[in-house]
């Protein structure tokens, strides 16, 4: 019942779409994380207007379906005279969507760093931004990696929605192949498997990265239990 020939004939085409998916997600993350950082810091700003705008952006993009955000970007940008190709619109929409979520992740990470850390940095003469860069943000890194990874996986999956504005990424390619072959089962299983493989790869890589950071700061101990043993010995 399976039409194996389709796997061979259309794999190059699907891989091309897959490659565009990867490129779009990478660009969206590259834009989305700085945007998220900006929004997270903006939300903490003492200027009411800045914190209001940041909060509104975050809440609006978190509380609406991505597909309608994509459509709005697609129609609104030319409405105000900005004509971009669908790929660029897609990257911008995905970055804005991701940025709203990244912002909340980064904010939670900053909140998790003890207050004394910021105070000690400010007391030694660092500016707010220097304290963020040198003391606070590096400490949030190991806290935010797991949720940032999850959000990255979400972005990979949400990028499928860019097919609706004719971005020739993986899902769009799948729809085209299905239109040519009328073999939806083979096509969509392959599309799904490619997404799945990408997600699993990213998840595994990030887990390794997280472990390497933890090891660096606690090089002699592999687990928390051994480090607490050391601490209690030191105070006895």
């Amino acid at each position: 019942m399976l039409e194996y020939q389709i796997f061979f004939d259309y794999t190059p085409m699907l891989l091309l779409g897959f490659w565009l998916t990867i490129k779009i997600v990478v660009c969206a993350i590259a834009l989305g994380i700085p945007l998220g950082l900006f929004l997270a810091l903006g939300r903490r700003s003492k200027f009411l207007i800045v914190s209001f705008l940041s909060t509104s952006f975050i809440e609006v993009f978190r509380n609406t379906p991505f597909i309608i955000q994509v459509f709005l970007f697609y129609y609104v940008l030319p409405f105000y005279g900005l004509k971009l190709s669908a790929e660029y619109v897609g990257v911008l929409a995905l970055a804005a969507f991701g940025g709203a979520y990244f912002a909340e992740i980064i904010r939670a990470g900053i909140d998790a760093v003890p207050k004394g850390q910021l105070e000690s940095a400010r007391a030694i003469g660092m500016t707010d931004w220097q304290a963020m860069r040198n003391v606070i943000l590096p400490q949030t890194l190991s806290i935010v990696i797991p949720p940032l990874t999850n959000q990255t996986l979400t972005l990979i999956k949400e990028s499928a929605i860019l097919s609706t504005i004719t971005v020739h990424e993986l899902t769009m390619t799948g729809l085209m192949v299905q239109g040519e072959t009328f073999r939806p089962f083979e096509v969509f299983i392959m599309v799904a498997l490619l997404y799945w493989a990408l997600n699993e790869t990213v998840a595994t890589l990030m887990r390794k990265f997280e472990q390497s950071i933890k090891k660096k700061r606690n090089p002699t101990s592999d687990s928390n239990s051994s480090s607490t043993v050391e601490k209690s010995e030191g105070t006895k």
């Binding site: 996986l153 990979i156 999956k157 949400e158 990028s159 499928a160 929605i161 097919s163 899902t171 799948g174 729809l175 299905q178 939806p184 089962f185 969509f188 299983i189 599309v191 799904a192 997404y195 799945w196 997600n199 699993e200």
Partner: peptide
């Protein structure tokens, strides 16, 4: 669970919509 979490819901919708009739 891994399949559902690892693939876009859009693709899952297409799978159900296009594949079940087959």
């Amino acid at each position: 669970i891994s399949f559902i979490r690892g693939t876009p819901i859009l693709v899952q919708i297409f799978l159900v919509y296009y594949v079940l009739p087959v």
